[in-house]
Design a protein around this nucleic acid. Structure first.
Lengths: 320, 320
DNA sequence: ATATGGTATGAAATGCGTTTCAGAGCAAGA
DNA sequence: TCTTGCTCTGAAACGCATTTCATACCATAT
């Protein structure tokens, strides 16, 4: 494979000049520039990325702190990150934490010792000041709504999204509304719970504690929800489900038990997972793929702190 | 970040000795080995991958020739490849060919000019001798059943898988069986067609031309199939569908049109895509994810030619 | 006693770009 | 005429680990 030296020799210039052409620096006469370009063409020259990054002091590694990867929310996020990482010729270093704060610190230490170029924290476990301490060592991005001077962020308006979902169900005539959620606590869960109560408040409706189904992560959980639903004396007429995977389980189980969707039970999912399309589930699309990509873009940007917020969009299908 | 020089200085040895310890070479006394290990610990030393690969002359890039990525077969394959590439700290260079032979040659030329470390051809367009010419320049792996001396291969027993599917339908009492397939021609399609006829032959059954649905790639295609199916005078009682995505479309459309599955029409899919699990579709699982990983592993192995064949497994659910 | 060969070690070359520094040429301003 | 300040160019240093080569020591084998 031809290298920069070969090109320089062929074009009768120094390697510095070739490097200048390669990097679009000024201070190269057209004459030499053209000679270099010709030489590159003739020799089938391609830059050696390893040499570039070695020279520039980059590791080409990007740390990703993530609690687990087998949940649709995180797997969609990870998909987006992978895609962008591939695009930017970076390798993701997955640090699965299971919400263990010490594991997260290990990842931060990797940044300190320059073992990674940047760090994405998909779900934070440590307190804010611990994280901020490490920003001196490289770019850090969190996936939550936080306007820090030193840490970039990419977030989704979870409150608004949930509120919008509630409004949609209410508009369709529902008053007895329940919801399914993953963790009971956590920033996002709290926001959603708040949105739930606020929305019900606008129509003076109340809710029962057992209309709130927690620990809903998988298709199986959705099936379980239907089972519990059937044993209720007073049943909700609609469910807001924070994961399409769970919504899919619910819809399938309803079919088995001859519960009419949406007449008897309306279902509104989240994420717009391919499953939702297949099962004709109405859903609120969260641009998780986009968020993932933006996380990587932000983490690879060493110059500025970026704050991005993403919206959502309601996709009406046949389950509401 | 500490480098090999720092470690050498700290341990009072030469960089060569540190490199020997790092790479497990013999000819290092225990005394020095321990000193080096201590130094690495003390200095938080991590090897710089860019320097290693630059030194070893690797690009850390792996070419992937693929006709398109939006088809479930290829996207599952690609998923597996991505995962393994990530694992092995390599970046995939996607060369989407749309079955254009010239594009494929471009990819082979990249190998020639050492722009990539190896090449995976997920679906070949050029003749065999064209491909073999390039093996001198680096490892090439194809995804088809071919026992070459110089090109590695990873394949699935498509004939057997299809035949097994037919046998299953026959065992369930079906005689009038149709099938859905992507391309009408191609190595795999031919194998499947052969298996179809061979299986029908064992029960002296015949088939109608219009029980064979071609161009079946997406959910929409599945919906189209049902439409065509309903207009048939003599209808098959079972369909073997070479993609779960299509099978999902069929099942959903059947539901809309009140065609009972499996009583009126049995459906047996392929791939064991998550969709199949969600829609309770019987399917023949092809280990595409594993195949993808093995493709990458084989392509990154420069020393030997590897031939791997994968089987399949029938997953019985409620659609047959 | 001498040749032979394995063990152990380090200096230096190598892979390939980027970046710093020094200097030459030239035009505008003092 | 003499600065001052671009514009343009290339030599050399640098980033980090691997690998080749040279050398020295020690133990067998002859």
């Amino acid at each position: 494979m031809a290298n920069i030296k070969d090109v320089a020799r062929y074009a009768n210039v120094s390697v510095t000049t070739v490097s200048r052409v390669l990097n679009g620096h000024p201070y190269v006469t057209n004459e030499k520039r053209e000679a270099v370009e010709e030489a590159m063409e003739a020799l089938h020259y391609r830059q050696n990325m390893n040499a570039i990054h070695l020279s520039k002091g980059k590791t080409r590694l990007l740390g990703v702190v993530i609690p687990f990867v087998d949940h649709p929310y995180f797997s969609l996020l990870l998909n987006g990150m992978s895609k962008e990482a591939l695009h930017q010729e970076h390798t993701l270093v997955l640090i699965q934490t299971n919400y263990d704060a010490m594991k997260e610190v290990e990842a931060l230490e990797m940044l300190k010792y320059k073992q990674i170029d940047g760090l994405v924290i998909a779900s934070r476990s440590n307190t804010w000041d611990v994280v901020e301490e490490y920003t001196a060592f490289g770019p850090i991005v969190v996936c939550e709504d936080r306007s820090s001077e030193v840490v970039s962020s990419v977030s989704i308006r979870h409150y608004d999204a949930f509120y919008e979902g509630m409004k949609h169900l209410i508009k369709k005539g529902h008053q007895k509304i329940g919801f399914c959620i993953g963790r009971k606590t956590g920033t996002n869960s709290n926001l959603r719970y708040q949105a739930y109560r606020d929305a019900l408040h606008t129509i003076q409706a109340t809710y029962k504690e057992d209309w709130i189904f927690t620990n809903c992560l998988s298709i199986e959980d959705g099936e379980r929800v239907v089972e519990e639903y059937q044993s209720l004396v007073e049943k909700p007429t609609a469910l807001l489900v924070t994961s399409d995977q769970v919504a899919a389980g619910i819809r399938m189980e309803c079919q088995k038990r001859n519960i009419d969707v949406p007449e008897e039970l309306a279902i509104l999912g989240f994420d717009n997972h391919p499953l939702a399309r297949a099962l004709d589930l109405s859903t609120i699309e969260l641009p998780l793929h986009e968020v993932g990509r933006k996380l990587v873009i932000s983490a690879l940007n060493d110059n500025e702190t970026i704050h991005t917020q993403y919206g959502f969009s309601l996709i009406e299908r046949g389950s509401v």
